[in-house]
Amino acid sequence: MGSLPDIFSTLVQGLKVTLLVLVLSIICSTIIALVAGLSRVSTNRLVTGVTGFYVEIFRGTSLIVQLFWFSYALPGLFNIHLGSDIWVAVLAISLNYGAYMSEIVRGSIQAVPSGQTEASIALNLSKFQRMRHIIIPQAVRMMLPEYGNYLIQILKATSLVSLIGLTDLLYYGNIYRSTHLSDSPTVYLLLLVMYFVIALPLIAFTKKMESVSKKGVAHG
């Protein structure tokens, strides 16, 4: 029977990979979400069409299949290698969550009342200035609470990367359990606690953003 410190010291070895995938995925999915979200409100049909296609494909298929696809199918089929496994994982998670999050970006931009655009036209602001100074600052305030929710979901999604051979928290948990079967409850309880502790700052961020977003948004 292994002791708690024993189990903990094993699991901790996976912390670095989990955090790395988490942070990189948050950065990349945010960029993807902003670009795709802005593209979907573009007046260019080709741009909206292509991004719409991307969003529906990645929302409509499962993340785990996408992970396998990037990791095993692409290299086998087309000899495309996406670099190290870490980047394969980050890419799959970011494209998947970027697709979901782009919908918040699009929705928030469209939710800024039309009177805001009209007032900026009346003040002779250019299209770019309208977006940059009026629409996006207000849209960001609206999207922040939901954005926080997605960050927590990304954390939970990182646990899938052990399936393509990355050595994250869950991977070390499974390794430990396979040699200490009777410790299974303790291992998985500890894993839950560790994921929750990592999620705490993200939860706090979401709460804070909810109060921020209540201020400074036009209504009606």
Binding site: P113, A119, L123, L125, G216
Partner: peptide, 23 residues
């Protein structure tokens, strides 16, 4: 405008300064 359409994320002063500075 009938419904003012002030920019809610800016102070009153910033509302007035934005366009002359940018445009």
């Amino acid at each position: 405008f009938q419904h003012f359409n002030l920019f809610p994320h800016m102070t009153i002063l910033e509302n007035c300064m934005l366009a002359p500075v940018l445009v």
